[in-house]
């Protein structure tokens, strides 16, 4: 969540006063199920969320099987096909951006690279960056959020101030600046994965205060709850209380917010690539393809529509699934 103004993610949880009234009376009758089981049952009933989940699974599968898919249906992502291009105008020959049985999603203008392969490889990068940066945000957010909420005092005020500060920071601006000056190859990795790591770090870093705030708030309220008091009076040490008593109770909101931060990260990664500081060529990324399409969209709209639609579908699926997951885990927040 480092995009500030133009992709905004808001805390939409607002606990209702009385949860019971919302509940189906039949649910009350079912006894002895764990929270997990209940949530799973609820999630399964939410057809929209399940749909989103399935699309996500398919995307993950595509990303994993990318090399195989390209062998079967495509061409190497960096292979030029100049015979598919009108040499004077640089536009793909044929209708709809050169879509054909051989080139399932057409070819890129100017160089004739296979868009299908580039979309598939783009999915790999996009999902990797989005998942890992969400993971990084979560770890940092949980660590700092719990510390702040549990320890309190000056530790809390320092961490809270840092979070406030980071949220008041022009993040997109800063991400662009940082990413653009960092070297493209590091640690013996090629430009694609080295830049992915940079993106993961930057996006993940700016995202943690969102999780941190929520975790801190939850920790604060849990700290005063009876079972924590009880375990403390039984002589449990702080680490035990933190990890054995509190963390399991925080798992649900953490899971929900991690899921909801993924689509935002996808948008951020695409935005950075769009602005020219993302995955460098010749490696494909959806945002980078959109940015290339800027020069051609009037005469080759498919080149814009395909990566745009991919971003849309992916983000939408995560949002649908995340919403469903939240409803399932926390029925109070409807």
């Amino acid at each position: 969540m480092s995009l500030g103004p133009e992709t905004s993610l808001h805390d939409e949880t607002t606990p209702t006063a009385d949860a019971a009234q919302e509940r189906d009376p039949s649910e009350k009758a079912i006894a002895g199920r764990s929270l997990k089981q209940i949530a799973w049952r609820r999630l399964k009933k939410d057809r929209v969320a399940v749909g989103g989940g399935i699309v996500i699974l398919v995307l993950i599968l595509i990303a994993i099987l990318a090399p195989l898919l390209i062998k079967l249906f495509g061409h190497p992502f960096d292979e030029y096909h100049n015979d598919k291009i009108d040499p004077t105008l640089g536009l793909p020959l044929g209708k709809l951006g050169g879509i054909s049985g051989d080139y399932l999603l057409g070819v890129e203008p100017v160089n004739g690279r296979d868009i299908f392969s580039r979309i598939v490889y783009g999915a790999q990068t996009t999902l990797t960056v989005a998942f890992l940066s969400a993971f990084l945000s979560t770890i940092l957010g949980v660590l700092f959020g719990m510390t702040a909420g549990f320890v309190g005092g000056w530790v809390d005020s320092i961490i809270s101030r840092i979070m406030d500060f980071l949220l008041a920071f022009p993040q997109l601006l800063f991400s662009i600046a940082l990413v653009s000056v960092l070297p493209q190859t590091m640690f013996g990795l090629n430009a694609r994965w080295a830049r992915s790591i940079v993106l993961i770090c930057v996006i993940g870093f700016f995202g943690w205060p969102y999780i941190g705030r929520i975790v801190r708030g939850q920790t604060l309220s849990l700290r005063e709850r009876e079972f924590v008091e009880a375990s403390r009076s039984l002589g449990a040490r702080s680490p035990r209380i933190l990890f054995r008593e509190m963390l399991p109770n925080l798992a649900a909101p953490i899971l929900v917010y991690t899921t909801l931060i993924i689509p935002t990260n996808i948008l951020t990664e695409a935005a950075l690539s769009f602005l020219g500081v993302g995955i460098p060529p010749p490696f494909p990324s959806w945002g980078g393809m959109l940015s290339d399409a800027l020069q051609f969209y009037r005469y080759d709209p498919m080149f814009m529509i395909i990566p745009g639609a991919m971003i849309f579908i992916t983000v939408l699926s995560f949002n649908l699934f995340g919403d469903g997951l939240r409803d399932a885990l926390d029925p109070k927040a409807r």
Binding site: L267, A270, F274, G287, L290, S291, A293, V315, L316
Partner: peptide, 15 residues
């Protein structure tokens, strides 16, 4: 609304 949240502005803008 959910679709709207999921659309990047650099795509809707171009469209």
């Amino acid at each position: 609304a959910l679709a709207g949240v999921s659309l990047p502005i650099y795509f809707t803008g171009l469209l």
